[in-house]
Design a binder for these strands. Structure first.
Lengths: 204, 204
DNA sequence: GATTTTTTTAAATAAATGTTTAAACTTTGA
DNA sequence: TCAAAGTTTAAACATTTATTTAAAAAAATC
């Protein structure tokens, strides 16, 4: 997408997203963002009033972009196995495109950060997926073991998202290029569902 | 530990650790740190020369504090099952004491941050655990299935560490107190090894 | 006990950063 | 075409922040 076709406002927001995701709110400066958007700092405040307001918009978008797909897929009307495979596949592809997304969202939620909590009380409600209910059903049908499905869901999230949170750590430790890292997470598309389903199908 | 028995230098470093872990390098200020250490900002530079230098020390410590136990336990001379249980238990207890540690380390490694890479070339070498070799052995003995053990180790790390990276997210979404959150991760001490071992023991 | 060194304090400095201003320029609509 | 509204620019402003200075206080050394 040739950036010259975007409005100034869009260019600034895109730049802000890039800078905020790379550096976090504290280390990002208005000048960084303006330069990255190929404009000047006055325009940043002209369109968004303040760094804080601009950040709030970027954070909201990023939060939604990260967690909407999660709830959407987990609420899909799909059999368990297909759903798990789909979830891992789609989330992995999303995070390959935007690997800094979860680190940004989670790191800005550190401490008892009140700055974020406001914009979150609305967004958090969307959660409470039907995934756990589906697992419960399958367990009652005797198709899978009975287990703490809250923990299962958390482990699923962890196995998919964690590699991106520690991406640079992994790349550094194993000397991987971006492409090789992508291979690594692609392998997990088979691996994670396999582990999860093996566990669930083993009658306890 | 009554902080009056600590030297000024130690008080400043402790304060720096607290502030840096809560806010990250960019949002932490020398004044924050000085105030938290109950001294003035000149002393911060007197003992540590600059915010950057102080940060480097805190980062090095935090990195070591987080990942030394990982390699230490994974290199322990223990049977597989005991080792996995011990790993999850010890790491969980460590992170309950210092829940912001992994977020701090990983978030400061975002982007192609050169600031960090220097102090890391030395530290990273310590890795390459014997854990994967042990899994390989067990597989050859026929005790566990053959699998991609790099992925298994990564999943183990993910399942233990991720809940702390998303701690505030989880607490917010499920309305948990710190104590309730601790209960949640304590349950995982059984849960994670159970899932991992069930998977490994299932002959593929 | 005097002197030297180390530590502490308060204030100053210089640079960076978020924000604003005012004028120039462009677009829009009558 | 002309005025009004919207957009852009460069510069200024005010605040914050990292860092330094210089003098005072405390501790150590002789």
């Amino acid at each position: 997408m040739p950036n010259s076709e975007l409005s100034t406002e869009e260019k600034i927001k895109d730049a802000a997203k890039k800078i905020f995701l790379e550096k976090g709110f504290g280390s990002a400066t208005t000048r960084d963002i303006a330069e990255c958007a190929d404009t000047n700092i006055a325009l940043v405040n002209y369109y968004f009033r303040s760094k804080e307001k601009l950040f709030q918009e970027v954070f909201r978008d990023s939060f939604t972009e990260t967690f909407m797909p999660v709830t959407r897929i987990l609420n899909d009307d799909l059999p368990l196995e297909a759903k798990i495979y789909k979830f891992v596949d789609h989330m992995t592809e999303l995070l390959k495109r935007d690997p800094l997304l979860p680190m940004f969202v989670l790191s800005e939620m550190r401490g008892e950060n009140s700055k974020i909590c406001e914009s979150l009380t609305e967004l958090q409600q969307q959660g409470s997926s039907l995934f756990q209910a589906q697992l419960q059903e399958e367990a009652e049908k005797g198709n899978i073991r009975s287990a703490n499905f809250e923990q299962v869901e958390l482990s699923l999230m962890a196995m998919v998202i964690f590699p991106f949170l520690s991406m640079n750590m992994i790349k550094m430790k194993k000397n991987l290029s971006t492409e090789e890292f992508h291979q690594l997470v692609d392998e997990r598309k088979k691996n994670i569902p396999e582990m999860l389903l093996t566990y669930l199908r083993q009658k306890g």
